[in-house]
Simulated scan of single mutants.
Amino acid sequence: MANGDASFPKIAGSSWWKLRDLFKRKVPAIVTPTYLATALSMGEASARSNLIGPFKKIGIIDEDGKPTDRAYDWRDDHKYKTVCEALIEEYYPQELKDLFHSADSDLQQVTNWFMSHARCGEPAAKMFARFYILLLKADPKEADVAVAKKEGTKKSSPKDNKKQAKVTEKPELEFVEENPATQPPTVPAHTQTQTVPTVLNNTPELHINVQLHISPESSAEQIDKIFESMAKHLKDFNK
């Protein structure tokens, strides 16, 4: 910085791109807090401190709020890089430019430098650092990147979250415990299978003997169910 002033430009990236987009559409005759408040849906006080002051500082608008020749170059994609390079040359010391001259410079290291030289807190230093790196990039396409990043990080509404939860919710499985008293008793059955190979017309025959041991405590209804089940499973055996 030519005058040795330790106060550096501090402009949020979103404000930078929003105002540039306004100038690309139509350069206003004068930039006032009310103009910015209406165009960018922000408060007048915020527009005055976060946009009017900083843009006067870097020469985009003059002391009366009128756009300068630099404003016309700034909005031009072909001249945008030249404007960024001029701002870096005018407002930053050689030490910073020697240390951090690439667009991929580490944000935290640049922030630490500003904290030391501007004697400010980390939040302010980080804003200085982000704007400096924005100028290093000198790429008008960064506006599209910023918009895409904002849309990608936009939080979904509670209604959307509720819909998502409803879609991904797993159905609960219902387990019904059976009452042992309603089920037929377990009847130990000893099945003895004797295979008697009888050759008759070269066709083997299979004989099965089934022995059941039924508990004396079984009721007549339970015994009927046992034989009913046997009949059901063995009726087609000889077919």
Score class of each variant (00 low, 15 high):
E85M: 10
I61N: 01
Y72L: 15
Y91D: 07
D69F: 04
Y80I: 05
V83P: 03
D69C: 00
F55K: 01
R70G: 00
E63W: 04
I61C: 00
R70D: 07
G65T: 03
N50L: 09
A47W: 11
T68A: 03
P93W: 03
P93Q: 08
K56M: 10
A45K: 13
W74G: 02
D64H: 08
R70I: 06
K79G: 01
P54Q: 05
I58G: 05
F55Q: 00
E44V: 05
A47S: 14
K66Y: 00
D62W: 06
C84H: 12
L99G: 08
G59M: 07
R75S: 12
Y92S: 03
Y91E: 05
Q94P: 00
K66Q: 10
K66R: 15
K56A: 06
K79A: 14
A71D: 05
D62K: 06
K79W: 06
P67W: 03
E89K: 15
L96A: 11
D73V: 00
D98P: 05
D98C: 07
H78A: 14
I52E: 02
Q94A: 11
D73W: 11
W74H: 05
Y80T: 04
Q94W: 01
E89D: 15
D98G: 08
Y80A: 06
C84G: 08
S49D: 11
H78K: 13
H78G: 05
T82K: 14
D69I: 02
E90Q: 15
E90N: 13
T82Q: 14
R75P: 01
R70P: 00
W74L: 12
K57S: 09
S49N: 12
P54C: 04
L96T: 07
E90D: 13
C84S: 12
D76K: 12
K81R: 14
Q94C: 00
N50E: 12
P67V: 02
A71E: 07
E85I: 09
I58Q: 08
P93E: 13
S49C: 00
K57A: 11
D73A: 14
L87I: 15
T68F: 06
K97Y: 01
I60V: 12
D69G: 10
Q94H: 07
F55N: 02
D73S: 14
I88V: 15
P93L: 04
D77L: 06
K56S: 08
G59I: 04
D76C: 09
L87S: 09
D73K: 13
D98Y: 11
K66L: 00
I61K: 01
I58L: 07
A45L: 09
E89W: 10
Y92M: 03
D98S: 15
S46T: 14
